[in-house]
Amino acid sequence: MKKLNSQEIAVKLQDFPNWNFLNNGIEKHFIFDNFVKTMKVINAIAEVAEAQNHHPEWSNVYNKIHIRLTTHDCDGVSEKDFELAEAIEKIIVKHF
């Protein structure tokens, strides 16, 4: 898996509003109406992540999720991270 450089990441992030490049990963915070909706999002993302065999680093407190994507195999951001970020955005738009 090829590690993307900072210029490549910056160009790709233009298509991902509110995602930020920090510490060799891309990150975003999400806020939902309540805990139940938040857990539905987490479960939907978990299914996609498992299918892609690419798992996020994340945390959850009540109605908030912090998601961080990085590719450990290349010690940085790769296309896999943007593929999962795109899937996450589609889940949120479609279901929530």
Rank of each mutant, 00 (worst) to 15 (best):
M1K: 12
K3A: 13
K3T: 12
K3Q: 13
L4W: 06
Q7P: 07
E8Y: 06
E8H: 07
I9C: 05
I9K: 06
A10N: 09
V11T: 11
V11N: 09
K12Q: 07
L13Q: 02
L13E: 04
L13W: 01
Q14P: 01
F16R: 11
N18H: 06
N18I: 04
N18V: 03
W19N: 04
N20F: 07
N20T: 14
F21Q: 08
F21C: 09
N23L: 13
G25W: 05
I26G: 08
I26Q: 09
E27W: 10
K28A: 05
I31S: 15
I31W: 11
I31Q: 15
F32L: 05
D33L: 14
D33S: 15
N34L: 11
N34K: 10
F35A: 14
V36I: 15
V36S: 11
V36G: 06
K37W: 13
K37F: 14
K37H: 15
T38C: 01
T38S: 01
T38L: 00
K40L: 15
K40R: 15
V41P: 01
V41I: 14
I42E: 02
A44H: 11
A44L: 15
A44Q: 13
A46P: 00
A46H: 02
E47Y: 13
A49W: 03
A49F: 02
A49Y: 03
A49N: 06
E50F: 06
E50S: 05
E50T: 05
N53K: 07
N53S: 06
H55I: 07
P56V: 02
E57C: 08
N60S: 05
V61C: 12
V61K: 08
V61P: 09
V61T: 15
V61N: 12
Y62W: 09
Y62L: 07
K64V: 10
K64I: 10
I65L: 03
I65W: 01
I67D: 03
I67L: 06
R68C: 06
L69I: 02
T70N: 08
T70L: 09
H72N: 14
H72R: 13
D73Y: 11
C74F: 09
D75T: 09
G76D: 00
G76S: 03
V77Y: 08
E79R: 10
D81A: 07
F82V: 10
F82M: 08
F82N: 09
F82Y: 08
E83S: 13
L84R: 01
A85C: 03
A85H: 04
E86H: 09
A87Y: 01
E89H: 03
E89R: 00
K90W: 04
I91W: 00
I92M: 03
I92A: 00
K94A: 11
H95Q: 14
H95D: 15
H95L: 12
F96Q: 02
F96R: 04
